[in-house]
């Protein structure tokens, strides 16, 4: 019997849209469950990543916790896959990179329209924001990237099944989209 494949997934500075698209593989999830187990992932409730075969990362890196989780994934996953526009180039969250972070916080929590009880959140539980949002390849080595906002379920399935089979995933033609 083949050893079971262990997969971890996470959403950093993303919107969970890539995870939703992954859910769109629909009944193929059952086929996946036959051969794979999920480690840390929003699909379950595992808090820490253990040794995994495949790590799937949605979202870019916008705060200190993102950096920590991303490094944990890299440490424990044999293959790390960047999924979606945000993981690959920062995406929509990186639109804030053209503004000063202090200005963003001030407008959101102090001076913006409709703000009541103005105060910039400073609870020590909150992860510190980075000056800029970064794609994940600027922080760790990334093995494969699946572009799209989000990538289609079929594209995600094609890459995942190739990786599980030990093949080199091939994206071409209409499976490569940036929007």
């Amino acid at each position: 019997m083949k050893p079971r494949v262990r997969i971890a997934t996470t959403s950093l500075a993303g919107c969970f849209g890539c995870h939703m698209s992954f859910m769109d593989i629909d009944e193929r999830l059952l086929a996946l469950a036959e051969i794979a187990d999920f480690d840390r992932s929003p699909l379950g409730d595992v808090k820490r990543c253990e040794r995994c075969d495949i790590g799937i990362v949605e979202g870019g890196v916008c705060n200190a916790e993102n950096v920590e989780v991303l490094r944990e994934f890299r440490r424990h996953c044999k293959i790390l896959v960047a999924v979606g526009a945000c993981a690959i180039n920062g995406g929509i969250p990186a639109l804030r990179n053209r503004y000063d972070l202090g200005d963003c916080l001030e407008e959101a929590f102090l001076t913006g329209i409709g703000v009541t009880d103005p105060k910039i959140p400073g609870d020590p539980e909150l992860p510190l924001l980075l000056d800029k949002v970064h794609p994940i390849h600027e922080v760790v080595k990334v093995d494969y990237a699946i572009p799209g906002c989000p990538p289609s379920a079929d594209t995600l399935w094609t890459v995942l099944t190739a990786l599980i089979a030990g093949d080199e995933p091939q994206l071409s033609g209409e499976s490569i989209r940036y929007d």
Binding site: A82, R98, H134, H137, V142, Y144, A145, L171, I176, Y178
Partner: peptide, 17 residues
């Protein structure tokens, strides 16, 4: 990018203003 099979940015982003 599609035609050339580009799936990632490879380089660090400049994020110019």
């Amino acid at each position: 990018g599609y035609y050339l099979g580009m799936t990632d940015s490879h380089y660090p982003h400049f994020y110019p203003r």
